[in-house]
């Protein structure tokens, strides 16, 4: 870990302005992913702006009938909020399937969205990685590589990493939006789809945030009626990242929405797949995973995604 200077700020706009002003600055709040990456020198901030005192830790109703979740609300607090449990169960379920009790107590809503991939080659600085060092090459695409955990769709010739968040998959299926403040003090709102970027030729760019821009909240639209479910499939029974996860909201008439985690560089959802939910898992996955480019090691994720959705649909 490289040495860094440190300051605390109390206001989000001030934080964003400082971040644009100080070279090599980064925000820190929960720190559960950033500090991990700093120890590996995958993240090398020269200055940390501690935003944990900026007061963004409330969940409040919106005028539209939804909820505004402050960026600093912990994963534990968000999962336990009575309104979330009642009206956004898919989000509560996704949150409690992630990480561990200790980590969820510290990890924040904003930080969860900004998690970096768990690709083992990204994490090993002895290996080439286009995400860490653009143009260096991708060890995960090598002939002898281990790619079982990695992405099957939305990937590119430069990067096959997945996004590791469970929370974001639920937010995607809920049509949540990300609210930010820019370094010039303006507020922006981005859908999850706009927020996350696919790797293409620039896998180092993972989201649409501009220099200095800080996440201030996540906005949930009014509750979506129906059965909410989140099925996370992993090797051990807890404290592990998803091989595949399925977020599902299904109305009593069989229509609804589906998003996948563990398969792509962003939470994965397509309108044309949602449109055929009432036809069953196989119809959904034919559309949702059309164009998939799995490796030999992770092709099972295609079967697994379909069967996991089928399991959820059979539970109702």
């Amino acid at each position: 870990m490289k040495a860094f200077s440190y300051e605390r700020v109390s206001d989000p706009a001030q934080a964003a302005a400082r971040a644009a002003e100080v070279p090599g600055a980064k925000f820190i709040a929960g720190g559960t992913n950033l500090l991990d990456l700093m120890k590996h020198e995958i993240e090398i901030p020269e200055h940390l702006i501690d935003v944990s005192g900026t007061g963004l830790d409330d969940i409040t109703p919106t005028n539209e009938g939804g909820l505004r979740i402050g960026a600093l609300v912990s994963n534990a607090a968000l999962s336990a909020d009575a309104r979330v449990r009642k009206d956004y169960a898919v989000l509560s379920r996704a949150l409690v399937s992630g990480a561990s009790g200790q980590l969820r107590n510290k990890a924040t809503t904003g930080g969860n969205l900004l998690q970096r991939t768990r690709c083992p080659y990204f994490y090993d600085t002895g290996m080439p990685c286009n995400k860490r060092s653009p143009g260096a090459g991708c060890a995960a695409l090598g002939d002898g590589a281990t790619s079982r955990q990695l992405g099957v769709i939305g990937t590119s010739d430069t990067c096959i990493a997945t996004h590791p968040s469970d929370m974001a998959v639920a937010l995607r299926v809920l049509d949540a939006e990300v609210e930010t403040v820019t370094s010039s003090g303006e507020t922006r709102r981005l859908t999850l789809d706009e927020f996350y970027q696919l790797p293409g030729d620039t896998p180092e760019v993972e989201n649409a945030l501009q220099v200095g821009e800080m996440i201030t909240a996540v906005l949930l639209p009014p509750p979506v009626e129906g059965h909410h479910a989140y099925y996370k499939v992993r090797d051990r029974a807890s404290y592990a990242f998803a091989l595949v996860s399925v977020a599902l909201i299904q109305a009593s008439d069989g229509t609804g929405r589906v998003a996948l985690g563990g398969v792509a560089p962003k939470p994965w959802r397509r309108d044309e797949a949602d449109a055929v939910l009432s036809q069953g898992a196989s119809a959904v996955m034919a559309r949702l995973l059309d164009g998939a480019r799995p490796t030999q090691e992770n092709a099972f994720k295609l079967t697994l995604a379909e069967r996991t959705l089928a399991a959820l649909l059979a539970q109702e």
């Binding site: 083992p120 994490y123 290996m127 090598g142 002898g144 807890s238």
Partner: peptide
């Protein structure tokens, strides 16, 4: 094993899953 680069790839306690 990365059979080209010659090392154990999942070399931490998140990648190597012992029972919880």
């Amino acid at each position: 094993v990365d059979t080209e680069r010659g090392f154990f790839v999942n070399h931490d306690l998140a990648g190597y899953e012992v029972a919880v």
